[in-house]
Design a protein around this nucleic acid. Structure first.
Lengths: 339, 339
DNA sequence: TTGAAAGCGCTAACAT
DNA sequence: ATGTTAGCGCTTTCAA
């Protein structure tokens, strides 16, 4: 069942059928209807491979995700998927591991799959123009941006929150509750990425309240997963760090940290307050409910696609969208014990 | 950058390059190495559209998932993705909503995308041969099977646990701990799917221990999400149901149920034991750690792909693989209070 | 407004 | 062991 069969069926040439199928204007109404009827009748479905080959591009968007199973990304991906479908694009997902380079992965995928564009999630913040040169399709950074790199603002798009400000906001909330000894759990203070940025926000909050940062309250866990967060929190406690509150840079990690606190006999929030950032579903059901800054995942996923499509189809300009987070007051923050 | 460029670069014909690229045997070692070197140097990446066109099939497997954001599926999908890559297949994901029909979605995707096969997750258990007739590619049911339908065993594959037995096992564990008043939280007792099956296992466990089932202890929540589970548990408690233990059919729902228990002042496990099935990461960090039957998600995802690939490539026979679950004794099950 | 024909990049006969 | 070549199904000039 090819375009040829359809053409034969209604006695026109393949090019005419192609025109009809692609909504080209210069086809007479009569012919158009005849062709449409034949398509219906024969249950003809165009072969995308052939289409893609001749156009030398597919209508597919690649999504490169760093951080397998991060539930925060899951909800964004869902939004990306449904928005892409609305615009007639398919999504092809590529999960990469911590060590892998998302630009290389993206470039390879873009070329071998002839993608129209790329959405990067959980990526790095310091791309250089040279690295990006290998990409021959537009891309948008979703949930992060190129803070540390030196890319031109017009060479890519981004949809994200301001990680630094959000982190500051979280820590400010702890301070407003009377905390001064605030520990932080993060991957690394210098990953040139989300972790570093949120660390800066943490420092800024302390500074603006006149609190001296204490490096003994910083626990770097290297890997972004619950297990590392759990173990890191145990280390923090076991080395006798003196803190009344904990800022964890992501909800999933915060849940693991709460478990560690519990395992060491510290009650949340009586003995230790906890706050984080993300707003994943799960964190609504922790006991107590996690106090966190909710990121608008639906909006971000949707806008990532819209932005990309606009760049692809209309040669639209690259944009950098920033979103506000919402403080959800759960039950994990309370004033420190007086003693 | 095409196969032609590579051929020119090393002074051989395109077919030789093609042979090297596709690991055909009859190429001399010297030529093979020369070609490989050129491929490296030119950063040549084959155009899949062209490949797919000439082979008149893509090397893509469709994954239809019912149940957006179910963390249990996330880990299986990860395994599916990496295994597929090993075999040279791409994955195209399609999340469908509760109401949608996965067979229709799969059939449409298979045709327009020229898929080689389909993996179905979170599907229904009672397909009929007529429904399946619309599918022109092999499929494997992942995490479920066609228990209620009347499909021939050789018309599809499945990788799953025996839901009924696993549920019985979970409830047996509660009974072994001395519980007799065991409530259950599930979608529906007659969804012709996982929920119904696990309900049967629950009934069976009660029966084999001589406990009379009490329909007042059954809470149907209709939707498979945390919110519904939370609200369902509240309803169960608020209507005065008398139970000392709770069997929830999935980890994510169990976490929400625990929250509801907590919100009503019931301690786990002192006032109420909780057990479920799945073994998602998150449930390891609940407080207390959820006692659950762990499904081997990695194995299931991997074997779903292997099975499908074997059917596709070698005309292998359809198989039905069953897996054992592992009881993880967390801290949510204890003997009932004596009073 | 329509048709003929030239590829898109690749694989797989078939030929050497 | 290697090269030549005919398509795979489609879009798009170019011509009519």
């Amino acid at each position: 069942m090819t375009i040829k069969d359809v053409a034969a069926k209604c006695g026109v040439s393949v090019s005419t059928v192609s025109r009809v199928l692609n909504n080209h204007p210069d086809v007479s109404k009569a012919v158009r209807e005849k062709v449409m009827a034949a398509v219906e009748e024969l249950h003809y479905i165009p072969n995308n491979s052939a289409r893609d080959l001749v156009k030398s591009q597919t209508s597919t968007i690649g999504v490169v995700v760093r951080g397998v199973g991060n539930p925060f990304f899951a909800s964004i991906i869902t939004a990306v998927e449904s928005e892409a479908e609305k615009h007639g694009y398919s999504i092809i997902l590529n999960h990469i591991k911590s060590g892998e380079d998302e630009l290389t992965a993206g470039a390879e995928m873009a070329r071998s799959k002839r993608l129209k564009g790329l959405i990067l999630m959980g990526g790095c913040y310091d791309y250089s123009p040279e690295q990006v040169a290998s990409l021959d399709v537009p891309f948008v950074c979703c949930t992060f941006t190129n803070t540390f790199g030196n890319l031109g603002k017009d060479s890519f798009s981004s949809v994200s929150v301001n990680d630094r400000d959000v982190a500051k906001c979280a820590v400010d909330h702890l301070i407003a509750n009377g905390h001064k000894k605030i520990a932080i759990i993060l991957d690394s203070i210098c990953d040139r990425s989300i972790s570093e940025l949120r660390y800066k926000g943490y420092l800024e909050a302390l500074k603006s309240s006149g609190i001296n940062p204490d490096y003994d309250l910083v626990e770097e866990i290297q890997f972004f997963d619950m297990r590392s967060a759990y173990e890191g929190t145990l280390r923090l406690i076991d080395r006798g760090a003196d803190f009344t509150a904990l800022f964890v840079i992501a909800d999933s990690l915060a849940l693991a940290a709460m478990k560690a606190l519990s395992d060491r006999g510290r009650r949340v929030p009586e003995d230790c307050s906890v706050i984080s950032i993300d707003g994943i579903d799960m964190s609504l059901y922790s006991i107590p409910t996690l106090t966190t800054l909710i990121q608008p995942t639906e909006d971000m996923g949707r806008d990532a696609v819209r932005t990309l499509v606009s760049v692809i189809e209309e040669g639209g300009k690259h944009v950098h969208l920033r979103y506000d987070t919402t403080l959800r007051e759960g039950g994990t923050v309370a004033p420190p014990k007086k003693n």
